[in-house]
Structure formats: structure tokens, C-alpha cells
Design a protein around this nucleic acid. Structure first.
Length: 681
RNA sequence: GGCGGCGUAGCUCAGUUGGUUAGAGCAGCGGAAUCAUAAUCCGAAGGUCGUAAGUUCAAGUCUUACCGCCGCUACCA
């Protein structure tokens, strides 16, 4: 009996392009899985769409002088196009700005409201009178109440790392226009997650999901779930369908996953069976599989199931194969720094299948993995071209040269022939099972093993010899090789669909490579008599010169980032002081006489300083950067009238100045020799 | 601070419930072959599995501490 499976990939947020990290996390594994399941004869619907609401989109639009709709229209088209070109074949790539989605989301909201599942709370929030909007935490800047840094964001101060309440910021400013926001009281609807926790825990406990997903969830449960606001004061989003909710929309994380449902509805409408979506969402026999990146786990494994559970009548996720992150050339991807490989750029230069294969072979299934252009090149040159491509090429060259371009017959199969056919049948079945259990990386290696086995067979059978002394055996060998190529085309289809189809056509087979069912991939279908199509090299080698610009571009960004970090960013200055205020600081040149480490500390050195005729004892936190023995004799600048303090029980009678460089502290010293005790001003 | 993860051959990564000489691919080394996109195939070599203890007849696999990296979390500072 065939399975019915609804597969979703995380909805990409429509304020940017798709990059390899997105692909590796949620899209490519899903696409491979879907293609396999279809070939295995299962009924699969593959759903995705653009997530088009939320504050970042309104802000990005404002900055670009566009309306939010114009912005999401732009990214919708370009991302939909990217997916298509890379071969991610959704049944429907919808968008959350559609009326159908608004309607569906509102139905969800109302259902929760009417069942009395939602809480209403009044809170105080900052409001920008210029932009006429409530400011989300990260869109407020101000002075950090904890450390006094100037550029603290409403949610967190990057200087001292404290998490902040935006209302506690001193001198708050709107991050968009710079105006001073005012405090207003507003009302929001909340999902009382604590109430839902027991049911959720019970449900999740029976799941046998990947460790990373379970660990995340258990962490959240342990902390105890908290109420979560699902509304926002914004004019961009799904309006809250209640009379007393004027100007409020749903929080983007509430409406986005509902997008899976509205996208399925849209799909059903498009194919002319508007009720068919129910068969995938309300039929308990249908499996629901969400492919996501690890950043989405909490939403898909906790908030979303809770919503579905409380609304009732919908299937809950069967499986959430969340992937870890993909790094790039050893560094984290950064969209803001443009440190990524963007799909539209990639597609201009290379063919989609190479990236698909290179990523599939190195998916971050268990932990973060690294993508490098060198690895990409190796995947293409050493595997796709040398192992797979070359096997096909060496076989077809024979068929073309000595068999008139027609696949020759196999009179009788030898042990060698039978063994290799058995072997590839076994490998094909194993690869399928691996995909079915979401081990796509291992599956990738497995299908390449089919090509390795094929090359081994070719070498053992030595058709270049049998051609001369035993043409019938030679023909049999080639016949077997062509069967293997058919298997290869089928088994590689989920990974490199474009090339698979190319191989299929080249072999002169009818239809395309998905027509062969996976279970029949290695069946003894004798292709003898088939006239080959036009043969060509399928995977060309990529040389270093083609990759160098890509590598250079990324290296430059890394270098720039390092430089940026080197200069204190933004040079946010402390509040102005007067000359008189400065005059209170008594800075003096002093010479270090002795220095010794303070026991049981990492950073502290006890220094004794000569200041004219006086001596001062200072404890300085420079031990990580200076050894005691290299200090005596150095002339440094001392804040001489600083109130004494005790550090680790040792009195410190001042402090010496040092510059904070990215590589550590550097002592400030005098440019020419001067007597100790000289005043610095 | 708390929680979680990671640290395995030169590189990228596997290692299922603890069980025999720790795996794969790539690079490097040796060889075979010459049909093919100088591609293929075979072989050997390569690791005190982050460090240090512990549990066990037996630990990469469990426990504890520590080091390094990462993530989440928190109305310490």
C-alpha cells in the first residue's frame, strides 16, 4: 500500500535571496526525499512558499523606498525562479500575502479565540510618532542602562551583552528615523504555552526524532514554556479578525506555518480539486514532514504543533528532520556581510546539479559542516566527472565505435555479469532506504558506489580485450554496462535530476529518468537494440581559474570583516565632558620597577611604579598580554589620582593606560624618554 | 550563570543499543591497466578518537572534571 506524504520546506523569508545555507538546510534534502518517494510510488505533495510578513520586511521596504508588497513581489519572483533553476520542484510555491492565506490564518486565529484558548494582555511599548508604528525591540536604539554604551539595541546591548527591556533604554531613539519614541499602552493576544505544555510534552515524547530536535525541545520544556504574543501593532500582515483589534496583525511566526496549509489549499485549487488539501491535512493516514534548519526547531516542534493541537482536526507533524548549519570556507554564513553563495549568482556560472551533489554529499545532518569551493570542485571533477561521467563515457564510446550506436544483446550472463548486477541492485535498494530514513548524505555516497562498482566491473571484464578475441562477451559486457547506466540514471535522479534526464535521453530511452520506478531501478530490463541518442560529455571538469574569483570574493569579505573588527566599530563616544572635568584626571609618566603575577589569577599583575621620588603599587589586568619580566624599565602613563581599590586583596593605587586592540591590550607609553612624574595633559 | 551540542587519520566527514586489529572519500605513497573527460582499478601506509581521572572483563561509545569552539537560555554583574 502506498504512503501518502505531505512534505514542506521552511518558508523562505522574503527580504533576501536564497543561499547555499538555505538549500542545505531545508530545500535540497526535502527535494531529494520527495523525488525518491515519488519514484518509490508514494503519493507526495511538496509544499513551500514565501513568508512575506513581519517587521523586517516593512523596514527593508521603507529603506528601499518601496512598499512592502513591492519588496515581496520582487523577492517572490526571484526566489521562485532560483528554486526552479536549481531543480527544487515544489508542487506549489505559494506566498503568505495571498488573500487565501489571510483567510486561512484568520480562521485559525478565530478558532483559537472562540475556543477560549487565547489570553489578552495589556503592555507598554515604545511607539515612534514619526513612523507611526510601534517599535519592535530591535528597532529601538539607546544608551544601555547597564554599561552606558551608546548604541544598545532594545533587545540587547552588544557591548556588555545584557538583555534589555526596551523601556529601560536611556535616550531611546527609533532605529529607522532617529525620532524619540513615546511609551504607549497596547493590547496583545497570547498563546498560553504553559497551559499547552503537558499535552505537547506527552505528544513529543512518543516521537523518535533526531537528537538535535528532541534536545532543543526538552530544553524548552525544562525552562517552562511562556506565553507567546501572536499579534503585533503593524499595518503589514494578516489583520486580526476581531472588532477590538484595529490596526493589529498576526505575528509572522504565527501565520507563517499556517502558510503550509494555505499553500496546499492553493495547490488543490490550481489542479481543480479544491477539497483535495483536506486529504493531506485532515486525513490521519497522511504523513506530515517538515524539513527545516535548526533555527526553526522551536517553531515547528513546539508552537506550531500546539496551534494545530488546540485548533483540532489537523494532522500533527510526523517527522521534523531538522538540519544543522552549513558553513562556508570555514566561516559562518552572514547575509548582512554578503558572506554567502547566493543562488542567482551561482546559477549564472555553474550548473545546478554540481551544487546539488556537492551539498548532498556534505549535508549538515548531524552537525554543522563546511562547504568550500575546493570541495565543490572535487565533487565535480573526482566524482561526477571521473567516476560517474567517465563510466558512462567509456561505455558509450564502445557502443558507438563497435556496435554502431545500438545497445548490443547479451547472449548469456557470466558470473561476473550476474554479480555486478546483484551488487548494484543491492546498492540501489540500500540507497533508497537511506533516503527514506533521512540519511541523505549516506545515500549520496551509496549511489556513487554504484558507479564505483560499475567501473570495477568494466575493468574486470576488459571489453577492450574481448572486443578483439570474443566479441560476443564484449557485447554482453556492454549490454550489462548499459543496464547499469539505466540504474544510475534512476538512482541519481533525486540528486542530480537534470543530468539524470540527460543520461536517459542520451541512452535513447523513452520518457525520462523518473519513469523507472526506484524498485525497478536495477531490474533486469534488457535495453538491447536501443539506439543511442546523441552522446556527449555530461560533466566537464572545472579548473582552478573558474573558482578563483569565488574564493577571492569570500576571502576579501573575511579580510574586510577582520579590519572592521580591528577598528572599534562606529567609534561610539562617551558623553562629552568639559575641559575642567578632564583636568580632574592627573595623568603622569611612571616607570615600571617590578612586576609580578598575582597568584591564582590569569589577568592580574602587581606592578610597582616609580613616580618621581614616590612609589606606587598598581594592579593591572594585563597578564595575558605581558610577561612580568618584560615590563621593568617601561615608561607608562598612570592615572595617579584614582581612588585606591583592592583587587584580590592587593591595593591598587591607580591605573595604567593601555589601548584595547583586537589582539589584546597594548600599553600606552611615551614617545621619547622623559623623567618619571612628568604630567601628561 | 544554566542547559545542549561539537572536538575521531593531512583535509571533509561516518561510527548504530559499550565488544574482536577505529571506518569512508579526497590528498600523499606503491603497483596494475590503457577502453575512457591523463579518467579507472588494486595495495599498503596513515589516528594514544580534545585533556585527565573513573565505572567495566571490555569505552570513540557511559560518569566526573578541565580546555577549546558553537548554539540556546537567563528581570546575576
Amino acid at each position: 500500500m502506498n504512503r501518502k506524504i505531505l512534505v514542506t520546506s521552511a518558508l523562505p523569508y522574503s527580504n533576501g535571496l536564497i543561499h547555499i545555507g538555505h538549500l542545505a538546510g531545508a530545500y535540497l534534502p526535502a527535494d531529494i526525499y520527495v523525488r525518491y518517494q515519488r519514484m518509490a510510488g508514494n503519493d507526495v505533495v511538496f509544499i513551500c512558499g514565501a513568508d512575506e510578513h513581519g517587521v523586517p520586511i516593512t523596514i527593508a521596504a521603507m529603506k528601499q523606498g518601496k512598499t512592502p508588497q513591492e519588496l515581496v513581489d520582487y523577492y517572490y519572483k526571484i526566489n521562485r525562479d532560483s528554486f526552479e533553476k536549481i531543480g527544487i520542484k515544489f508542487d506549489n510555491f505559494s506566498r503568505t500575502s495571498l488573500p487565501l492565506h489571510h483567510k486561512t490564518s484568520q480562521e485559525f486565529f478565530l478558532a483559537l479565540h472562540e475556543k477560549g484558548k487565547l489570553k489578552v494582555k495589556e503592555i507598554k511599548q515604545l511607539y515612534c510618532p514619526e513612523d507611526k508604528m510601534y517599535l519592535a525591540d530591535r528597532y529601538v536604539n539607546g544608551i544601555c542602562p547597564k554599561c552606558g554604551a551608546e548604541d544598545a539595541r532594545g533587545d540587547q546591548c552588544e557591548k556588555c551583552g545584557s538583555w534589555l527591556d526596551p523601556l529601560s533604554l536611556k535616550k531611546p531613539k527609533c532605529a529607522i528615523c532617529g525620532a524619540e519614541p513615546i511609551v504607549k499602552t497596547t493590547k496583545h493576544w497570547y498563546l498560553p504555552m504553559a497551559d499547552f505544555q503537558p499535552d505537547l510534552e506527552k505528544w513529543l515524547k512518543q516521537k523518535n526524532w533526531k537528537d538535535n530536535v528532541m534536545n532543543y525541545c526538552n530544553g524548552w520544556f525544562k525552562e517552562g514554556l511562556r506565553d507567546r504574543a501572536i499579534t503585533r501593532d503593524l499595518d503589514w500582515g494578516v489583520p486580526v479578525p476581531l472588532p477590538d483589534a484595529e490596526g493589529k496583525v498576526m505575528y509572522v511566526w504565527f501565520d507563517a506555518p499556517i502558510g503550509y496549509i494555505s499553500a496546499t489549499k492553493e495547490w488543490a485549487e490550481k489542479i481543480g480539486q479544491p477539497d483535495l488539501w483536506k486529504d493531506y491535512w485532515q486525513n490521519p493516514d497522511c504523513e506530515l514532514i517538515h524539513f527545516i534548519g535548526k533555527d526553526n526547531i522551536v517553531f515547528h516542534a513546539i508552537f506550531w504543533p500546539a496551534t494545530l493541537m488546540e485548533v483540532g482536526g489537523y494532522n500533527l507533524p510526523t517527522q521534523i528532520p531538522a538540519n544543522e548549519f552549513l558553513n562556508l570556507e570555514g566561516n559562518k554564513l552572514s547575509t548582512s556581510k554578503n558572506y554567502a553563495v547566493w543562488l542567482p549568482d551561482y546559477l549564472e556560472k555553474f550548473s545546478p546539479d554540481i551544487l546539488r551533489y556537492a551539498l548532498a554529499a556534505n549535508l549538515p545532518e548531524n552537525k554543522d559542516t563546511d562547504f568550500s569551493w575546493k570541495q565543490f570542485q572535487k565533487c565535480n571533477n573526482n566524482e561526477l566527472a571521473d567516476i560517474l561521467g567517465n563510466f558512462i563515457n567509456r561505455t558509450l564510446t564502445f557502443v558507438n565505435k563497435y556496435c554502431d550506436g545500438t545497445i548490443p544483446p547479451a547472449e548469456s550472463l557470466s558470473e561476473l555479469d550476474k554479480n555486478v548486477l546483484n551488487e548494484i541492485a543491492k546498492l540501489a535498494a540500500e540507497a533508497g532506504e537511506l533516503i527514506n530514513s533521512f540519511k541523505i548524505r549516506a545515500a549520496t555516497a551509496k549511489v556513487m558506489d554504484i558507479a564505483r562498482a560499475a567501473n570495477r566491473y568494466f575493468d574486470a571484464a576488459q571489453p577492450w580485450k574481448t572486443r578483439k578475441n570474443d566479441f560476443e562477451t564484449c557485447q554482453t559486457t556492454l549490454n550489462v554496462c548499459c543496464r547499469i547506466i539505466r540504474t544510475l540514471a534512476i538512482c541519481f535522479n533525486p540528486f542530480i535530476p537534470f543530468s539524470s534526464d540527460k543520461i536517459w535521453t542520451m541512452m535513447g530511452f523513452e520518457g525520462n529518468s523518473t519513469d523507472g520506478h526506484w524498485d525497478d531501478a536495477a531490474k533486469e530490463i534488457d535495453p538491447a537494440g536501443t539506439k543511442l541518442g546523441k552522446t556527449e560529455i555530461i560533466f566537464k571538469k572545472i579548473d582552478d581559474e573558474e573558482l578563483q574569483p569565488e574564493i577571492d570574493r569570500l576571502e576579501k569579505i573575511v579580510a574586510d570583516m577582520e579590519q572592521e573588527n580591528a577598528v572599534p566599530e562606529g567609534i561610539a563616544l562617551l558623553p562629552q565632558i568639559t575641559f575642567d572635568e578632564f583636568g580632574k584626571t592627573d595623568l603622569r609618566v611612571a616607570e615600571i620597577l617590578t612586576a609580578e603575577a598575582v597568584p591564582k589569577t590569569k589577568k592580574l599583575l602587581k606592578l610597582s611604579l616609580k613616580l618621581g621620588t614616590e612609589k606606587k603599587q598598581v594592579v593591572a589586568g594585563i597578564a595575558e598580554f605581558y610577561k612580568p619580566e618584560e615590563l621593568p624599565g617601561k615608561k607608562v602613563i598612570l592615572v595617579a589620582n584614582l581612588a585606591p581599590a583592592k583587587l584580590r586583596g592587593i591595593e591598587s593605587q591607580g591605573m595604567i593606560l593601555a589601548a584595547n586592540s583586537p589582539t589584546g591590550l597594548v600599553l600606552v607609553t611615551v614617545e621619547k624618554d622623559v623623567p618619571t612624574g612628568s604630567k601628561v595633559s
